[in-house]
C-alpha cells in the first residue's frame, strides 16, 4: 500500500449509463469477486489495485461514478484528473449504447485532451438478451479510434485484459509526454506558459525526488 513501492499511480475513471455494470467491473477487477447485487454508486467512489505492468508495480486508482444524469455536475470534477477512462455500455441495453456519443462528448469537454479511452460492452454472457451486436461496438470504437472489448463481469471475460490495455496505453502516453516535454525543455525556454510551468515542475520534482517517476 505504501506509495513508494509503486512506480506510479494511474487514475482511471469508469463512465457509462446507470446499471451497465461499472461498480461490478471495478469489484471484479479489484477484489476478484462478483455479486449480483451492489449498492448503487452514490456520487463517486473509488477502489485501488496494485498490478504488475510488465514487471513494474503500478497502482491503479479506479474511480467509479454514479450513472444518473443529475450526478454529472458533481462527477465532472473528477474527469480532469483522470489519465484513463473506461467507457461502458450494456450489450443488453440499446439505450446505453446510444448514449455513448453523449458520454464521448462529455469526456471531450471535461477531461484532459490526451486522456486514454477504452470502450467496453458489458454482459456479453447474456446471449439471449443481447440487443447490441459486437460489430456495432467495434465500429463505434474504430470511429473514435479507441480500443474495444466485450466483457463479462459475471464470467470474468476480458476484465483483466481491458484494464491492462488501459494501463499500457497510459504508460505509453506518459512516456511520450515526458519525451516531448523534455524536448521542449531542452530546446529552449520559449514555450508557452503551460509548458513552461510544466517543465519547471518537472525540474522541481526531479530535484526533490530523483528516484520517483516524474511523468
Amino acid at each position: 500500500m505504501a506509495p513508494a513501492e509503486c512506480e506510479a499511480t494511474y487514475k482511471v475513471l469508469v463512465l457509462g449509463d446507470s446499471n451497465v455494470g461499472k461498480t461490478c467491473i471495478v469489484h471484479r477487477y479489484c477484489d476478484q469477486t462478483y455479486y449480483d447485487t451492489y449498492i448503487s454508486t452514490i456520487g463517486i467512489d473509488f477502489k485501488q489495485k496494485i498490478i504488475s505492468l510488465d514487471g513494474t508495480p503500478i497502482k491503479m486508482q479506479i474511480w467509479d461514478t454514479a450513472g444518473q444524469e443529475r450526478f454529472r455536475t458533481l462527477t465532472t470534477a473528477y474527469y480532469r484528473g483522470a489519465m484513463g477512462i473506461l467507457l461502458m455500455y450494456d450489450v443488453t441495453n440499446q439505450e446505453s449504447f446510444n448514449n455513448l456519443t453523449y458520454w464521448l462528448k462529455n469526456i471531450e469537454e471535461n477531461a484532459s485532451p490526451d486522456v486514454i479511452k477504452v470502450l467496453a460492452g458489458n454482459k456479453c454472457d447474456a446471449v439471449s438478451q443481447r440487443m447490441v451486436e459486437q460489430d456495432m461496438g467495434q465500429k463505434l470504437a474504430e470511429n473514435y479510434d479507441i480500443p474495444f472489448y466485450e466483457v463479462s463481469c459475471k464470467q470474468n471475460i476480458n476484465i483483466d485484459k481491458i484494464f491492462l490495455t488501459l494501463a499500457r496505453h497510459i504508460r505509453e502516453q506518459r512516456s511520450y509526454q515526458q519525451l516531448t516535454e523534455r524536448e521542449h525543455y531542452d530546446s529552449g525556454q520559449n514555450g508557452n506558459i503551460t509548458l513552461d510551468l510544466k517543465s519547471r515542475i518537472l525540474e522541481h520534482t526531479s530535484l526533490k525526488e530523483p528516484w520517483k517517476c516524474t511523468c
Binding site: I39, I42, G43, I44, F46, L74, Y78, S112
Partner: peptide, 26 residues
Amino acid sequence: KDSGTSYEPPLMDVFTMQWFLTIFCN
C-alpha cells in the same frame, strides 16, 4: 496539482458527498 501528476478535487468531497446524500446510511 502542482506536481503536475494530476488534478485533484477537494480531497474530502468524495466522502462528504456519500455521507450527506445517503445520510450516513451506508
